[in-house]
Nucleic acid binder design. Structure first.
Lengths: 226, 226
DNA sequence: CATTGACCAGATCAGGCTTTTCGGTCATAA
DNA sequence: TTATGACCGAAAAGCCTGATCTGGTCAATG
């Protein structure tokens, strides 16, 4: 028996994904050619088509890979944190992890430079980010860990656009008045900590456990996806 | 004696500003020619240069005019509201008014379609929006109407990028998952209402008065600017 | 003296053409 | 059977040239 997932995960596929991730991150979807990817991965161009049906699929696989990385990053930041649970930390870690990953950041801000023409064709990826968040919030509400007088879907949407503003908006603000990313992140955390808190707080330890479990589960799902 | 402000406010200038506002809003800075503006205003092209030193100045004057309109709009929404004071209302009104004015909305989101090449040259306008907000927040903090454990400047920045996310981010979210603007606005209001509240709330009536006075003052300043 | 609009120079655009690039295929090689 | 890379067609990128547009000026007008 083997761990679940498609038949085999040939190393060639990993090398292709790694090479593609690097090139896509640097040059973007449109300006990265499959010839370059093949060369960087040390295989022939034809080999790409033995692993992926087309360029879009390769790119999407890279994004899934990066989403898994992001989730793992988030999880690690969370676990390293001794605070049992608070929205401050949850969002600080989440948005810091988003900001650290160009693909996830680009996904959130619809960065034309990275996603290029892929943007017009694909919407599944964009939808996923929000529904994952909505699901998480719904669970937190059920658990009494988050205010429930606002629908989870609305909160998920709101947090998404706020995150968008935080990572994209920074560039829209004149340098002189910009606030260091960490400062704005902490301030947002403080804001949400109060803004999202339930009327009477629950067992924070249990919430932390649930949260970690959910994130780990999402990460596993993303990784199996490749 | 005459009300303060530059010497005279010839009607020609008003007509030019009105015509320019309409054309710029429809076609954007780059694709609106001064010939068209002159024709729409019923004056000659040369007359534009008797009022404004160049196209940039005309455009900037239009933006100031629109900022004054926006502030008046905000003020009216506020006054029509019987709730003495709450951040819910304050931000709902503010962002609703922003969203209703293409120039202010475009200023906030750095809309290339309206601001075009003007964007690269100008930063003063962008800076102003934030510093006005920072000043307002500072006063609210002094008055004990807003939490003061976060610097006013940081809060102003944060609210700005959140607003950016709210009006710009909407377009970045797949239709299917989008939440009606009013819903997200109300949710944000609820969030900030708790998130920004001071430890012990003050006289809300007084806060409302102060706020109205400050906004009115800002509006007057903008209007005198033309 | 206030106002006009013909005029200018520089930038932009249109379009027709050639060259290059690139996703995807498949006969061939190992 | 697995993997390669030369090859294909379509699309994009350059490129050139002439036409057009447009911000800004200023002699002429009333």
């Amino acid at each position: 028996m083997r761990s679940p997932g498609p038949p085999t995960r040939p190393p060639r596929r990993r090398r292709l994904l790694a090479a593609a991730a690097e090139l896509f991150a640097r040059w973007g979807f449109d300006k990265t050619s499959l010839d370059e990817v093949a060369r960087a991965a040390g295989v022939s161009k034809g080999a790409i088509y033995l692993e992926f049906p087309n360029k879009d699929a390769l790119f999407k696989a890279v994004v899934y890979r990066e989403l898994a990385h992001y989730t793992r990053d988030w999880l690690q930041r969370f676990e390293r944190d001794d605070d049992p649970f608070s929205f401050v930390r949850m969002f600080q870690h989440s948005i810091a992890a988003i900001n650290a990953n160009p693909f996830v950041k680009g996904l959130m801000t619809r960065d034309q430079r990275i996603y290029g023409s892929f943007l017009q064709r694909e919407s599944e990826l964009f939808a996923m980010a929000i529904s994952l968040r909505a699901e998480l919030f719904g669970r937190l509400q059920e658990l009494g860990a988050m205010r429930d007088d606002i629908p989870a879907a609305t909160l998920a949407y709101l947090i998404s656009v706020i995150g968008h503003g935080l990572v994209a908006g920074a560039e829209a603000i004149p340098e002189r008045q910009r606030v260091p990313f960490e400062d704005s992140l902490r301030a947002l955390g403080l804001l949400l900590d109060r803004g999202l808190a339930p009327p009477r707080p629950r067992n924070r330890k249990a919430v932390r456990e649930l949260l970690l479990a959910m994130v780990a589960q999402a990460q596993a799902a993303l990784e199996s996806h490749e």
